[in-house]
Amino acid sequence: MSIVSRSLSDQAFEVIRERILSGEIPALAPIRQEALAEDLGISKIPLREALTRLEQSGLLRSLPNRGFFVPALSALEAEEVFALRLKLEPDAAADACLEADDAQHAAARAALAALEAVDGGDKAALATCNRGFHLLLVQSTRHQVTAQLVERLHLLADRYVHKHLEPEGRYRRADDEHQRLLDAWLARDPALVRALLAAHLQLTLDDLRLQLASTAP
């Protein structure tokens, strides 16, 4: 797959990110930069920029004499990431629903429609659209730092969301939860938004605890 774009690093970031989420690049396997650069049709400079960004996003790690690799999923990391999301995201969405305008309402409806239109077998696309929907709910002119922190947590959570969606039909349950959450957000009901989003995140974490039990230290 060759990349022809004015921003090679950005394009490489997106392609490699999707390969990580889909499992095409397996956990703990070293990233062979020369082979990957050749596959993408780019030089090693934009590739390394993309790999560094992916490391900053938590999707890659690097070690001396080993280079970049995808870290294994960790029950401990999932606990930490979702605990932080539970502390920040419900309140952020509750605050944002009070200031959202018609354009933001339309964007949130469109984001949920896009999520529901994704083929259930495309877990990487489901995770990406899921992130887009959640982030729209916390966009706020008054709490921009909070929204940026939530976005960072979502990048860290992406692989766990992908894992969470593995069981057949689970995304349909999430669709129902998302619809109720959107209805409350559009109705500008902060208490209900806070309660529904907290329950949604907690249920996801509970599922992940079972799925990742074997990876606990």
Score class of each variant (00 low, 15 high):
residue 51 L to S: 04
residue 155 L to R: 15
residue 156 L to E: 05
residue 74 S to P: 00
residue 55 E to K: 14
residue 143 H to G: 04
residue 133 F to N: 05
residue 168 E to R: 14
residue 74 S to R: 12
residue 160 Y to W: 00
residue 103 A to K: 07
residue 42 I to G: 08
residue 129 C to F: 12
residue 149 L to A: 15
residue 116 E to T: 12
residue 117 A to D: 15
residue 148 Q to Y: 14
residue 75 A to R: 12
residue 54 L to Q: 03
residue 147 A to R: 08
residue 79 E to T: 07
residue 78 A to Q: 08
residue 152 R to C: 01
residue 53 R to S: 14
residue 144 Q to A: 12
residue 38 E to V: 05
residue 113 A to V: 01
residue 119 D to V: 09
residue 53 R to D: 10
residue 44 K to Y: 06
residue 89 E to Y: 00
residue 76 L to P: 04
residue 124 A to E: 03
residue 78 A to M: 02
residue 114 A to L: 09
residue 111 A to M: 02
residue 94 A to V: 04
residue 126 L to S: 07
residue 94 A to Y: 00
residue 101 D to Y: 02
residue 163 K to S: 13
residue 133 F to D: 00
residue 153 L to K: 03
residue 54 L to M: 11
residue 46 P to D: 03
residue 155 L to A: 05
residue 146 T to V: 12
residue 170 R to A: 13
residue 153 L to R: 06
residue 37 A to E: 05
residue 154 H to E: 12
residue 121 G to I: 09
residue 95 D to H: 13
residue 61 R to C: 06
residue 52 T to K: 15
residue 100 A to Q: 10
residue 115 L to E: 09
residue 48 R to V: 11
residue 140 S to N: 10
residue 158 D to Q: 13
residue 82 F to D: 06
residue 45 I to W: 02
residue 119 D to Q: 11
residue 125 A to S: 14
residue 76 L to E: 15
residue 96 A to E: 01
residue 93 A to I: 07
residue 140 S to Y: 09
residue 110 A to D: 06
residue 97 C to F: 02
residue 136 L to T: 01
residue 45 I to L: 11
residue 56 Q to R: 15
residue 40 L to E: 12
residue 147 A to I: 08
residue 51 L to V: 02
residue 96 A to Y: 02
residue 126 L to P: 00
residue 104 Q to I: 02
residue 120 G to P: 02
residue 168 E to P: 15
residue 148 Q to V: 09
residue 123 K to G: 11
residue 70 V to P: 09
residue 67 G to W: 09
residue 76 L to G: 13
residue 65 N to Y: 14
residue 101 D to H: 00
residue 135 L to N: 09
residue 44 K to G: 03
residue 60 L to I: 11
residue 72 A to E: 14
residue 65 N to K: 10
residue 95 D to T: 12
residue 81 V to M: 12
residue 57 S to M: 13
residue 114 A to Q: 04
residue 66 R to F: 14
residue 139 Q to H: 09
residue 78 A to T: 06
residue 133 F to L: 13
residue 75 A to Q: 10
residue 171 Y to P: 11
residue 151 E to Q: 14
residue 145 V to M: 11
residue 137 L to Y: 01
residue 96 A to F: 04
residue 132 G to S: 05
residue 68 F to Y: 14
residue 155 L to Y: 13
residue 93 A to P: 03
residue 98 L to R: 09
residue 167 P to F: 04
residue 104 Q to Y: 06
residue 153 L to I: 04
residue 45 I to P: 15
residue 159 R to I: 04
residue 47 L to D: 03
residue 62 S to V: 01
residue 86 L to G: 05
residue 69 F to H: 12
residue 71 P to V: 05
residue 60 L to C: 10
residue 96 A to S: 01
residue 104 Q to K: 10
residue 123 K to M: 08
residue 58 G to Q: 10
residue 108 A to P: 00
residue 50 A to W: 03
residue 164 H to V: 05
residue 56 Q to L: 06
residue 159 R to A: 08
residue 97 C to V: 05
residue 134 H to P: 00
residue 164 H to T: 06
residue 62 S to Q: 06
residue 134 H to G: 06
residue 142 R to P: 00
residue 44 K to E: 06
residue 59 L to G: 06
residue 138 V to N: 09
residue 82 F to V: 02
residue 148 Q to S: 13
residue 84 L to W: 13
